[in-house]
Amino acid sequence: MRVALFLTCVNDTLYPDTGRAVVRLLTRLGVEVDFPPGQTCCGQAHYNTGYRHEAEPLALRYADVFREYDAIVTPSGSCGAMVRELYPRLGARARAEGRGDTLATRLAPVIPKTYELTEFLVDVLGATDVGAYYPHRVTYHPTCHGLRSLGLGDRPRRLLEAVRGLELVELPGADECCGFGGTFAVKNPDVSAAMGVDKVRNAESTGAEVLCAADNACLMHLGGTMARLRVGMRPVHIAEILASTEQEPPR
């Protein structure tokens, strides 16, 4: 099986540790993973801000770059949801605008082959115990697009529960949005910040050392809020927890 990593532009630029963790984790599980260098951005920020036409070339680039692979794995619920939920919509809208089936046809092959990381682990590899070791108290925030668009359900939780040494504590109001919302964070900064503070306070109340999520964009917002509030917790992407072992603790 040829597996490609779609790291996403945010992770590539700001969170390379998450990318390295995915590579280490998948390699440990016997999956050879490739990083096609032509990949850039899925176009989600464009699409969700109202620039659908600007998102189309980025979607086409994604389709071209990843066409040859059997599976495409991404450590981002929202970018995964962009491909799986919104690429079909891009094609349908182009058709409705009288631009034919070209866009839909070119995007179609990569859509079902795109998996969010925890989906790939649980559904494709059939693994919930990935042999990880992470001796910390962790609370998990299910990010909105992973939760509601992709329907990740309890997959991340099952993976975390199987990590040795990890104590998973319940996050109050877990399924409420953290307030990031892409350009929402700067277009409605007061509401976004208020949502972030409430999420951080809920996380703090669990006594966890680590706030875990499967999306670094949300963690960037929450981590920035934690730092500003001087809350003694750290945001960690689930890939970095699952990649860590006794021999190779997180860096």
């Binding site: 590539d12 630029t13 730092a227």
Partner: peptide
């Protein structure tokens, strides 16, 4: 952004 949140630290090199 930065009125309420710290900026992320840019890593030494991209992935």
């Amino acid at each position: 952004w930065s009125a309420s949140r710290d900026l992320p630290t840019v890593p030494a090199e991209p992935f």
